[in-house]
């Protein structure tokens, strides 16, 4: 099939992906706060209620546990609900339903009950937001068996991954990097670039491997560009899937470069980055020329937004870690 490519922002790509999923399967429902007439606070669901009706694009009462809990019941009835949690920091009222019910119903019923539920979560910082509107809580969910956790970094991945997540018969936590909602990028509407749970090499290099997900990927590419101008060749991997992690491309890259820096906006302690660092140390020990290094948000609450740029890893902090890795 010939490529049908258009330059659109991630928010519009997600909107197009949701539209395609709603059109393809009448069991797909969207549920969330302000997703109808308003189109969601980030306008990701703009126009969908008008097109598919209030029965399929549902403005729910303002209660996150209620949204996920009723989505579970709808899934038991054969529906495929896609829940929007308005902001990252507001997912916690639903934490019990997600971790004790949604994640466990398939194993509790020995496979008799499937939970094809997607939970969309705008996450991460860089947008000058107030408290609870800039967090990166993905590790809580990656820690829970029974859930799948993914995060697209580009409009193309947004368009395809949301449809693949909806098609999955397992629950998927779908983390959308909100600072990337607006920059445009090419979307090829003819075919998906990669399977949902695959990690991709987005820039090849030979000296150091850096891996990240979501909004971090743009920072990593910027860092790699600066490094190239200084004669350092960095290979950049977009994690895309946080649970399960697709280790083969990461290990292959580390075997080539001998050095790995794992980057994330989330706090570093007990994080997805910690897990990757530990696993690469276990599996690629003899390929490593330096310790695996991590660049993360600090192990603190997210700070006031006027100083968030000092909290969030930027290209300079990534390159500082690259320099340390190369110094071994």
């Amino acid at each position: 099939m010939a490529a049908v490519t258009e330059e659109i922002p991630l928010a519009k790509a997600l909107n197009a992906g949701l539209r395609a999923a709603l059109a393809a399967d009448e069991k797909v429902l969207l549920m969330g706060e302000d997703i109808g007439k308003l189109g969601g606070v980030f306008r990701v669901t703009e126009g969908l209620q008008e097109e598919f009706g209030t029965r399929r694009v549902i403005d729910t009462p303002l209660a996150e546990s209620g949204i996920v809990g009723t989505a579970i019941g709808l899934a038991m009835r054969g529906y495929r609900p896609v829940c929007e949690i308005q902001f990252d920091g507001f997912i916690f009222p639903a934490f019990d339903q997600i971790t004790t019910q949604l994640a466990k119903l398939t194993s509790r019923t020995a496979g008799a009950v499937q939970m094809p539920v997607v939970i969309r979560v705008p996450y991460g910082g860089h947008i000058g937001a107030v408290e609870h509107h800039q967090e990166s809580p993905e590790a809580y969910f990656a820690h829970t068996a029974g859930l799948r956790v993914v995060s697209p970094s580009t409009p193309n991945d947004g368009y395809w991954m949301i449809q693949e997540a909806i098609a999955s018969n397992d629950p998927v936590l779908f983390f959308e990097p909100k600072s990337r909602y607006w920059p445009k990028g090419p979307v090829d509407f003819s075919r998906s670039a990669a399977e949902l749970h695959s990690t991709r090499v987005v820039r090849t290099g030979t000296d150091v491997t850096i891996v990240g997900h979501g909004a971090m990927v743009a920072t990593l590419l910027a860092a790699a560009q600066v490094a190239a101008e200084e004669g350092v060749s960095i290979e950049v991997l977009d994690l895309r899937s946080l649970s399960p992690v697709d280790y083969a491309p990461i290990l292959a890259s580390v075997e080539k470069t001998g050095r790995l820096v794992v980057c994330q906006e989330a706090t570093g302690f007990a994080s997805v980055g910690s897990e990757i660092a530990a696993t690469v140390a276990e599996r690629a020990f003899y390929s490593l020329e330096s310790p695996v290094l991590r660049v993360s948000g600090f192990d603190t609450p997210y700070p006031p937004s006027k100083i968030e740029s000092f909290y969030l890893p930027d290209a300079d902090r990534v390159l500082e870690a690259v320099d340390r890795a190369l110094a071994y």
Binding site: G69, L74, A75, D96, Q101
Partner: peptide, 21 residues
């Protein structure tokens, strides 16, 4: 369901599905 009360929401969601059907 051993987490007290959590299944009340499943029942309500299921009942919404019955309405949709």
């Amino acid at each position: 369901c051993l987490v007290i009360g959590s299944h009340a929401l499943h029942a309500t969601g299921y009942a919404m599905g019955v309405q949709f059907d």
